[in-house]
Nucleic acid binder design. Structure first.
Length: 571
RNA sequence: CGGGAUGUAGCGCAGCUUGGUAGCGCACCUCGCUUGGGACGAGGGGGUCGCAGGUUCGAAUCCUGUCAUCCCGACCA
């Protein structure tokens, strides 16, 4: 490709409406153009990167035995009603009506369609297992799109679905996919960590997320991991080993005491001179419009995803002060669990509350707490707390570390959630109808592109891994009006093309500085500069990842050979 | 939906306080000069000032409403 013909314009400045580095660089280097919030045009350079990633995904998926297909992007409400998700998916599902006034939607995912398609096609256990996938645009009307391609509303995803006759076979395939994912991201030049996670609205039990670890805010997930064993988990799923022994407030008898102006745990702990972990904190929520009180040790916080799962809710929010009076007949900051009407209000106890003795508890009266309280015997404890850095690994009891992560893929063991809901069955050996046992496996293709930039860039621009770079080599004649330079550049360019090495020739009539800046910004892994040293028969060979002044002067033939080696070895 | 901010040329911004009919830099076009890390000079094209009302002789500027975008929380590949 000749640079003068490339449909691309770099900008001199970063766009104002971008914050994430991948977003800034994608816009500035001309890879993407925003059409609407969270909706972008992929310009030719971006499209090439997306194709590279897609091809790696395709290659590895095919190798794993999965088959590629392509499902409709616009879908009738019917299949969504069948699975029950038409009513629970909420506003992320963009709905519309066709000309006959039939309800339709833009696909945010494809469990429904694939389940009904497989049910139509495969009726015997003899045809199972099967794993099918597609690479396609998805649309999710996100509450808040942000960070450019990291959280767009429209994005490209690889989604795979597997169907099995047994849990054991699902688990086997799950391992195959885990290995496939590790291979895919590795080939893309990305280190990922597979972490345990919550399975969320998609449903199911076991799931792992593939995270690109970063230190920046754009990693939207907190990942807890152990340095001495391989435990790692998303904060919405992480657990820690908590010492529940000897958490004793030391109060000799239970009594109500005055605790004026102690709405926070810190205030209260100071006022009563106890440790925060000797206070049993109550946090009140409205979950799917029903009141819930979550009891948790004073030094811990509620993990709201866990809480939602524990009560089976899709939406939760903190209770407002007026609702605390209305539902709990209590006072914000002084809530207990003892006086609630349990037929109307659900009460949960976090595991951290286990073993607490003679603790402090709200008295349901403003400015009053109970001290020396103890829990009743028959209490059931659930895990609804957020892990904090430094808490102990649940496996090996070493301190946990936390880091940010960008989720580029995930794998789920769905089980029979969708097959049962949609009555999608096969006939087993005994002639009985059984629902398929399913798994699903996603990769954010466009997000992977952005994540790679988050990971690989410097002050000058993007530094693409060779495997997913839009082009491998940028051939830059310093002065296009110099006949020797231009001829040599053209020859190198032609030679690279004939070797199937992807090259651009920067034949634009600009000063060298402009071309160098663009080369760095766009992030070509290799730059071959044809300048004055052509009089000695030499060109400059420079790697993008190396320092700006680090380069070697070699003959054009050697330069081509080096490109060949690098592209062959993908480094 | 809650909290904060911003909408003026393709991009980045000034002008708004104190109303007087729109400007700067980059990019773009022409000419000259230059040519190894985003040169320089001269000339030129491009904007219903987010949108709708209102106040006023007159609104980018003041008032009201509305829409959009960005950042922080709930969603997630």
């Amino acid at each position: 490709m000749k640079m003068s013909k490339l449909f691309n314009k770099t900008l001199r400045e970063f766009p104002n409406d971008a914050d994430a580095m991948s977003h800034k660089l994608l816009v500035r280097a001309g890879f993407i153009k925003k059409l609407a919030n969270g909706i972008y045009t992929y310009m030719p350079l971006a499209q090439r990167v997306l194709n590279k990633i897609s091809n790696i995904v395709r290659d590895e998926m095919n190798l794993s035995g999965a088959q590629e297909l392509l499902m409709p992007f616009v879908q009738p409400a019917e299949v969504w009603k069948k699975s029950g998700r038409w009513n629970v998916y909420g506003k992320e599902l963009l709905r519309c009506n066709d000309r006959h006034d039939n309800e339709m939607c833009l696909a945010p995912t494809h469990e429904e369609v694939i389940t009904s398609t497989v049910a139509d096609t495969i009726t015997s256990y003899k045809d199972l297992p099967i794993n099918v996938y597609q690479i396609q645009t998805k649309f999710r009307d996100e509450i808040r799109p942000r960070f450019g391609l990291l959280r767009g509303r429209e994005f490209i995803m690889k989604d795979a679905y597997s169907f099995h006759t047994s849990q054991a076979d699902l688990e086997r395939e799950y391992e195959v996919m885990a290995q496939t994912y590790t291979n895919i991201f590795k080939r893309c030049g990305l280190d990922t960590k597979a972490v345990q996670s919550d399975s969320g609205a998609i449903g199911g039990n076991v799931s792992h997320e593939y995270m690109v670890l970063t230190d920046t805010m754009v990693g939207e997930n907190d990942v807890f991991y152990c340095q001495s064993c391989d435990y790692s988990a998303n904060s919405n799923h992480a657990i820690s080993f908590l010492n529940v022994e000897n958490v004793d407030g030391g109060f000799e008898k239970e009594e109500i005491v005055d605790t004026p102006n102690t709405k926070t745990i810190d205030d209260l702990a100071k006022f009563l001179n106890v440790k925060p972990n000797c206070i049993l904190k109550a946090v009140a929520y409205i979950a799917d419009s029903k009141p819930v009180v979550a009891m948790i040790r004073g030094d811990k916080e509620i993990e709201e995803t866990k809480l939602m799962n524990a009560v089976g809710a899709l939406e939760i929010r903190p209770m407002e002060d007026s609702e605390i009076v209305e539902y709990l007949n209590s006072s914000a900051g002084f809530i207990s669990y003892r006086n609630v009407d349990k037929s109307k209000v659900k009460v949960l106890f976090d595991k951290s509350a286990k073993g607490m003795k003679n603790f402090v508890l709200g008295a349901d009266i403003k400015d009053k707490h109970i001290v020396g309280a103890n829990l009743e015997d028959n209490i059931e404890f659930v895990d609804i707390s957020l892990v904090k850095e430094g808490e102990l690994c649940p496996i090996c009891k070493k301190p946990l570390k936390v880091t940010r992560g960008i989720e580029v893929g995930n794998i789920f063991q769905l089980g029979t959630k969708y097959s049962k809901a949609m009555n999608a069955c096969y006939t087993d050996e005994n002639g009985e109808l059984k629902p398929y046992i399913m798994g699903c496996y996603g990769i954010g293709v466009s997000r992977t592109m952005a994540a790679a930039i988050e990971k690989y860039h410097d002050d000058f621009g993007i530094i693409w891994p060779v495997a997913i770079a839009p082009y491998h080599v940028d051939v830059v004649p310093v002065d296009i009006n110099d006949k020797d330079q231009m001829e040599t550049a053209q020859k190198i360019y032609d030679a690279l093309n004939s070797l199937k090495i992807e090259a651009v020739l920067d034949d634009r009539d600009y000063r060298a500085g402009v071309k160098f800046k663009d080369a760095d910004l766009i992030g070509f892994p290799i730059r071959i500069t044809v300048g004055k040293s052509i009089s000695e028969g030499l060109v400059e060979f420079k790697l993008r990842k190396d320092n700006k002044d680090k380069m070697v002067k070699i003959t054009p033939t050697d330069a081509i050979e080096k490109c060949k080696q690098m592209v062959l070895n993908q480094i």
